[in-house]
Design a binder for these strands. Structure first.
Lengths: 336, 336
DNA sequence: GTGAAAGCGCTAACAG
DNA sequence: CTGTTAGCGCTTTCAC
């Protein structure tokens, strides 16, 4: 005989108890709880509902998951929930998921690829019904992941990845438009602060900047590599300020970097936008509260999140994806 | 005969398959997977491990949960993950939980108490092993929650609540010290921007401010109520600037409000700290990147999160709690 | 050292 | 319209 552990004292109340209390079978309880698949006589149903109420019965989600093979759980892995962009994305996903009756299992990778891989494995073994990945991994790495057929979308990813549904924003165009705006202000020296550079897969923001710069026939523009953090932007800007000639404008690949750059410029006594104009990417909340407020590129995060959740639930995620348009948000850091 | 749905195609590989492949019984597989409760001969164990490897077997977390009555899941409900303080807390909790083999079920209440209640019910019915609440609710409301014996801690809560373990920071003292610091700079008019005011349960930050002000024998200091957002701080500061006499210093109940206040002052052309000094509470990352950088009160979030997770796992959470010390972080907004 | 089997709570096919 | 029952994948007692 096994020793079923009496389920810890908690969730004592089971479907059995409800059935007994209402004087029906467990099947009937199921039918009323799930509103199907069979019909139940109105007053029987009422009795059951009362029993549920009285006993404060709550279905056991794991028994259900075991039986059905689906959990109503979505897994999300983010590099660092502390970054406003990821927090905003998480919130949007949570909202979209909740609206469909799904809860969110959150894993934070601490900006570490190894951690990310183990997080993904963990979520998969917890049988999430779908996975949204805000990933640090490269495409070949993604291919080696063992998802056991868990539907997965890569979020904020331009391009496609076999085995995944890719949801992204038209970042190339977004950056291009922002830089063109800077060009429109008459700037001829627009250096790029770029958060991460992968020689195999140039970032669309870099591509957009570079296209705008080329089109404007500006020459030899500088790229200052760093990472996607305030500190990274700060240090990159310090390096830029330490060398000559100074650019008249800077495009930063994220608002976070722009915030760092702003600090470096203030500390050095350079005025934004008078001495150096600035624009960036993401449109996090903070962008409106910097001084000057950031001209930046807005991503339709809510739409993207909704689409991600929909794709996972509808389940056609083995390939393809969606690209969303961005929008230039003009504030003051560009000189407007 | 039932129709067990063949578990969706996914997680096809079960303990059965591994057992068959390794030529042992399912019990033995369990023993090696769980490293107990029985010992297994080394080479048998090796065979099983190879089978697991080859078949890429992953245990079904729900079957396990059903059997054991515990899920290795912690639920967390936050008012708004988008706010840096909650994001930082979530990250710290995730870290602490992961270190103990627990995953995090995240629910965002969108700053809505009704939503929060339903979130809590949802997490409880999903049988989380513990709940950490960053709550909007009042103490009486908390008492009415149906937790079904789920261990729960209220996070960032000063005082105690029956039925919960309360983890908080010594916010009264923290605010007191910050305001005293302002007093030390010679300020005699220190108005308070307070994010939310509940007449029944005055916020410890308000208490700390008020104690410091009283001790310094300053009279009739003003309180400007608002909410815990950038916009709230912005508007509160606009109101303050619109009336006379102007204070020489402002204490804000959160960094977010301080960020908003900073914007209002810049727009009005008042210099910080020369015209009006500023200090606040929380020490979110952004506090270091504002201009001037914020003098603020730091909470030991990581320690608090670790303690919360530990309490939930150890399971002695029906009462009591822990209070953590804060630390004044002096930067430039105060005039230093 | 290994295996058989019960049963966690639930769903749904089938019988009545 | 209602009841009986198998079985989802797992753990663990008990027997060998």
């Amino acid at each position: 005989m096994p020793e079923p552990k009496k389920t810890s004292v908690r969730d004592r109340v089971t479907r059995q108890d409800v059935a007994r209390f209402a004087g029906v079978s467990t099947a009937v309880v199921s039918y009323v709880v799930n509103d199907g698949p069979k019909r139940v006589a109105p007053d029987t149903a009422e009795r059951v509902r009362r029993a549920i109420e009285v006993l404060r019965y709550q279905p056991n989600a794991h028994a259900r998951a075991l039986r059905l093979g689906s959990t109503n759980l979505l897994g999300i892995v983010v590099p660092d929930i502390t970054k406003p962009f990821f927090a905003a994305t998480t919130e949007a996903l949570e909202r979209a998921a909740a609206a469909e009756g799904y809860a969110l299992l959150l894993a934070d990778s601490a900006s570490d690829r190894q951690r990310e891989k183990s997080n993904i494995g963990n979520l998969v073994s917890r049988q999430v019904d779908g996975l949204v990945l805000l990933t640090l991994l490269t495409e070949p790495e993604l291919a080696t992941l063992s998802l056991r057929d868990t539907p997965a979308v890569v979020f904020n990813w331009s391009g496609t990845v076999p085995g995944f549904y890719a949801i992204g924003a038209a970042a190339e165009t977004g950056a291009y438009n922002a830089v063109r705006h800077l060009v429109g202000h008459g700037h001829k020296d627009i250096t790029l602060i770029m958060g991460a550079r992968d020689p195999n897969r140039p970032d669309p923001r870099e591509l957009g900047w570079s296209r705008a710069v080329r089109e404007a026939k500006l020459e030899e523009q500088r790229i200052e590599g760093t990472d996607f953090t305030r500190l990274g932007g700060y240090q990159a800007m310090q390096r830029i300020l330490a060398s000559r000639p100074l650019p008249t404008a800077v495009y930063a690949s994220s608002d976070l970097e722009a915030i760092g750059a702003l600090r470096a410029m203030r500390e050095a006594g350079v005025q934004v936008p008078e001495d150096i104009a600035l624009a960036s990417f993401d449109d996090i909340v903070d962008a409106e509260y910097t001084w000057p407020a950031l001209t930046t590129v807005r991503l339709p995060i809510v739409d993207m999140a909704t689409a991600a959740v929909a794709a996972l639930i509808r389940g056609d995620t083995s390939t393809g994806g969606q690209l969303f348009d961005t929008q230039l948000v003009v504030r003051h850091s560009c000189g407007c």
